[in-house]
Design a binder for these strands. Structure first.
Length: 522
RNA sequence: GCCGCGUUCGUCUAGGGGUCUAGGACGCCGCCCUUUCACGGCGGUAGCACGGGUUCAAAUCCCGUACGCGGUACCA
């Protein structure tokens, strides 16, 4: 049973999907699903100068990777695909934009394909006296700002005061306006903002918000290139697409009153609005690409996908940046989040991106996954890293031994490097601490005893027993032999269970490494 | 500058007049477990921005200040 709740995620294809964008999408998705509603994807490609070819594709891929598949959206191969997308893989080639039909009946879902609509409504606004044509060039507007600029007002607006000095259909005689229009003179359509009014609305996150219209400028609705601005397009589309709730970032709060005015002048009921707190950089300020990367935080969702982060972890972490279920749970599956999600639990203040906490979520998700599953995902990475044709069974053992000590999938390859490659050198501190008087002799003895083991008996319990017996005979502590063996075999002083590791390496390899260490460290 | 929004441990948050000597989580520190390191378990550290009100009572309501953030484009 579906309700009439309809929300949209409306990114602009001006760059790769940003982590903040993903959170906005997530909250929209959660809200929609919580109410059995519809999650719409709309591409706001009205800025032709900033259009980035690969951006749209990137948005689709990453939404699907994060399990936030839109119910309605533009026509693409990936949108029409089954849904599950392989973790951590780039799929650009295989999923090239297709010519399939849109999913949903409120399309087209790309604003660049809806321009006639915007012109119709812009015309309607002009005819009803709530908008007007303006013929000023960019230079003329700049000159106006220069003219009215004062210390108190560094950026004069195009508003009821200044518009009377400009070239527009409010100041020009009617026949002149007609002539300019007929001649195809470059022009824009501007919203005629009233003076002396208060626009108030109830934000679902912030409650009552109000603005004085005197603080607003005559927003351009239709640009000279014929494209609408965000303001017009978003209002027209949200209405035509029957969007019931607009859930977007706080950076839009300031323009909300202009939207309210547009709904009013178009004679439409505005949707409910919810402005989400921004995701902040640890150093302060909106988490911008540059700022984040300076602090070592990737901002593109693609980076996380290609780096094999667990999508469930990223989603869980992002959900908690500005929202919480209200109880003590920290780990929630997507269905659990859907169940718990309400806008009144969304916070008002910005949330700083805590990278360590993301890693904690990632570790948790990884440890919950099956060894075989992780091994399968690891295999291509291992091959890439030059691990040779290691089989899945071997990788599964590596995963089992290392799972509790890595934060991200690729780290298996670093932490487990010694499983495929003998140490070239020994960590100095560890070697010095392990290799003392008599060590060489003891290691040699251990080497000889385990060398005598058969293939079936070269197993962890046996290897441990032999070492235990030997330290007893030698009357030394367990670590006096265990640590040197560990350093000899792995090169470092810490790591996963030694005997399991020896078993996995196999007799020949272990003997080789022990011999090498006796020579180098003895 | 102007407009708007915000402010509980370092961070994410619970809390919405008395049950708050403010709860949980990440991080950090310590202890335990242990063959090392981790994992895990236990414990600790640390916070209501400030100043005025209102009230018998305020982290919670009101006002102001400070600070932070956003907006101030023919970008979204």
């Amino acid at each position: 049973m579906s309700s009439n709740v309809r929300v949209r995620f409306a990114p602009s294809p001006t760059g790769l999907l940003h982590i903040g964008g993903l959170r906005t999408a997530l909250y929209n998705y959660l809200f929609a699903k919580h109410h059995n509603g519809t999650f719409v994807l709309r591409i706001e490609d009205t800025d032709r100068t900033r259009y980035v070819e690969e951006a749209e594709q990137d948005i689709f891929e990453n939404l699907i990777w994060a399990s936030l598949k839109p119910d309605e959206g533009p026509a693409t191969a990936i949108m029409n695909s089954a849904g599950d997308w392989p973790r951590g893989t780039s799929v650009t080639e295989e999923s090239a934009l297709g010519e399939e039909k849109d999913t949903g009946s409120f399309g087209p879902y790309r604003q660049s394909k809806r321009t006639e609509l915007y012109h119709t409504y812009a015309k309607q606004l002009v005819d009803s006296g709530h908008a007007y044509y303006a013929f000023d060039t960019v230079d003329e507007i700049e000159a106006m700002r220069e003219r009215f600029r004062t210390a108190k007002n560094p950026t004069p607006k195009y508003d009821p005061q200044t518009r009377s000095t400009m070239k527009n259909s409010l100041t020009l005689p009617e026949n002149e306006v007609r002539r300019l229009l007929d001649d195809g003179a470059e022009h824009v359509v501007r919203l005629k903002v009233p003076s002396g009014e208060t626009v108030r609305f109830d934000d679902l996150v912030r409650e009552s918000v109000s603005f004085e219209t005197d603080g607003l400028d005559d927003q351009v609705l239709l640009k000279a290139d014929g494209m609408p601005t965000y303001h017009l397009a978003n209002v027209v589309d949200d209405h035509l697409m029957s969007i019931t709730h607009v859930i977007r970032g706080e950076e839009w709060l300031s323009s909300a009153p202009k939207h309210i005015l547009l709904y009013r002048y178009l004679g439409w009921e505005p949707p409910e609005m919810a402005h989400l707190p921004l995701i902040m950089s640890p150093g302060g300020g909106k988490l911008s690409k540059r700022k984040a990367e300076e602090e070592g935080i990737p901002v593109n969702v693609r980076d996380y996908r290609l780096d094999h982060y667990e999508p469930e972890a990223l989603v869980n972490f992002l959900a908690f940046l500005g929202w919480g279920p209200g109880d003590d749970r920290e780990f929630l599956t997507l269905p659990e989040m859907i169940e718990a999600f309400t806008l009144d639990r969304v916070n008002k203040s910005g949330a700083i991106f805590d990278f360590k906490k993301l890693l904690w979520f990632n570790e948790h998700v990884m440890r919950d996954r099956e060894d075989a599953d992780l091994a399968r995902e690891l295999q291509p990475l291992a091959a890439e890293k030059g691990w040779g044709d290691v089989n899945e069974r071997f990788l599964k053992s590596v995963v089992r031994l290392l799972k509790e000590r890595v934060s991200r999938l690729p780290e298996f390859l670093e932490a487990g490097k010694f499983y495929v490659e003998a140490p070239k050198e020994y960590e100095e501190k560890a070697a010095k601490k392990a290799w003392k008087e008599g060590t060489t002799e003891r290691v040699a003895k251990y080497r000889d005893r385990i060398a005598a083991l058969g293939d079936e008996t070269f197993v962890a319990p046996e290897l441990k027993q032999i070492l235990t017996d030997l330290v007893e005979e030698e009357e030394v502590g367990f670590g006096k032999l265990m640590m040197p063996v560990r350093v000899a075999v792995t090169g470092v002083g810490s790591g996963p269970d030694l005997f399991e590791s020896l078993e996995l390496l196999g007799r020949e390899e272990v003997i080789r490494r022990l011999d090498a260490a006796v020579v180098k460290l003895g």
